[in-house]
Amino acid sequence: MAAAAAAGAGPEMVRGQVFDVGPRYTNLSYIGEGAYGMVCSAYDNVNKVRVAIKKISPFEHQTYCQRTLREIKILLRFRHENIIGINDIIRAPTIEQMKDVYIVQDLMETDLYKLLKTQHLSNDHICYFLYQILRGLKYIHSANVLHRDLKPSNLLLNTTCDLKICDFGLARVADPDHDHTGFLTEYVATRWYRAPEIMLNSKGYTKSIDIWSVGCILAEMLSNRPIFPGKHYLDQLNHILGILGSPSQEDLNCIINLKARNYLLSLPHKNKVPWNRLFPNADSKALDLLDKMLTFNPHKRIEVEQALAHPYLEQYYDPSDEPIAEAPFKFDMELDDLPKEKLKELIFEETARFQPGYRS
């Protein structure tokens, strides 16, 4: 834990890192770190609560700039109880001085990944967590956004079992017609939660990839272990087919990539493993919904509104309290091709509203 900075004593240090967030945020305490930044909790002297502050230093890398800009653009436009918001952003007053960006968010005690390492969940908890994931996802999908990296560590939890989806750095506007060349190379989302079509096709992607990830998360809540822990690309596919069985001819016809289709045709026939054999203690309604989410063919996979209306979630289902976005989200430009200098300018502009004396 960093010592509390005395008023006016300059930035606090946390594990050798400068955290320049005073005077409003003090009493910093280390939480963890990701690929390009550290997260601390801090005391907000204005709202009198502890908050989470993520320090991001992305400006050396085009990919990190892209992810940072995506996350900020999306989260500043989203407003939903099951999606983490941005409360404040701290950065230098000029673009030349801006080396880091500090993002202030609600402090959540833990995440689903940490929880599943230590606790076996009751059916009631599984049901409530799944409902909140789908409630947040309904809003995301209504904005025409794909999260693309749903996994237990991106689901934040607090002691009252509130759940918030975080990390929109890989999110995209849904565009089933656009052929994202190089899709697989830039697709760094965790393999275990990846839909089979991501490994088999490169053309376009749809909201059904997020539903697949939610199915993987439900299976993990039922058993405290990942359902498809593939060691590499082909191993991942083999794990999936080992449980779902061989795809039907109709399902194979959806695979545009001939090499991928021929690979699947070359494999020995596998039978589907019954879900109640894998999860003998699970609620039968939970397994019915799991089956509809972990469907090989993305066109037959359940959609988020149908999933919310499934009998497993009937005690929570309330369409009048499951809000959607006001308007579909649009990125003005494809960020993939922009140089990091341009992305830095866009991050600077996007964060201006939090600067003292800002006038829109």
Rank of each mutant, 00 (worst) to 15 (best):
A2Y: 03
A6E: 05
A7W: 02
G10T: 08
M13E: 08
R15S: 15
G16V: 15
Q17N: 04
P23I: 01
Y25G: 02
T26W: 05
L28G: 01
S29F: 05
S29W: 03
A35D: 13
Y36P: 07
C40A: 09
A42D: 00
N45T: 12
K48M: 15
I53S: 12
K54H: 00
F59S: 15
E60F: 11
Q66E: 12
R67P: 04
L69I: 05
L69C: 05
L69F: 03
R77P: 03
R79K: 13
H80Q: 14
I84W: 03
G85A: 13
R91N: 13
E96C: 01
K99W: 00
L107E: 05
T110P: 15
K117E: 13
Q119F: 06
S122E: 11
H125D: 11
Y128G: 05
Y128F: 15
Q132C: 07
I133T: 02
R135Q: 06
G136F: 05
G136L: 08
K138T: 02
Y139K: 11
S142N: 04
A143F: 02
D149V: 14
L150W: 09
K151S: 02
N154F: 10
N154E: 08
N158E: 09
L163W: 05
L163Q: 15
K164Q: 03
K164Y: 09
C166E: 06
G169C: 15
A171D: 12
A174G: 09
A174V: 14
D179M: 07
H180L: 15
T181H: 10
F183M: 08
F183Q: 04
L184W: 11
T185A: 11
T190P: 13
R194T: 11
E197T: 08
Y205W: 05
T206K: 08
T206C: 12
I209S: 12
L218R: 02
L218P: 02
E220D: 13
L222C: 10
S223H: 03
I227T: 03
P229G: 05
L234T: 07
Q236V: 08
D251R: 06
C254T: 09
N257S: 13
K259N: 13
L267M: 15
N271D: 02
V273F: 08
N276Q: 11
R277Q: 09
L278C: 08
L278F: 04
L278W: 02
L287W: 10
D291W: 06
M293N: 02
L294H: 03
L294A: 10
I302C: 04
Q306E: 09
L308H: 03
H310P: 11
E314S: 08
Y316K: 06
P323L: 10
I324Y: 10
A327N: 01
K330G: 08
K330E: 10
D332Q: 02
M333F: 07
P339V: 11
K342I: 15
E345C: 01
E350L: 09
E350F: 04
T351I: 11
F354Q: 08
F354V: 09
F354I: 14
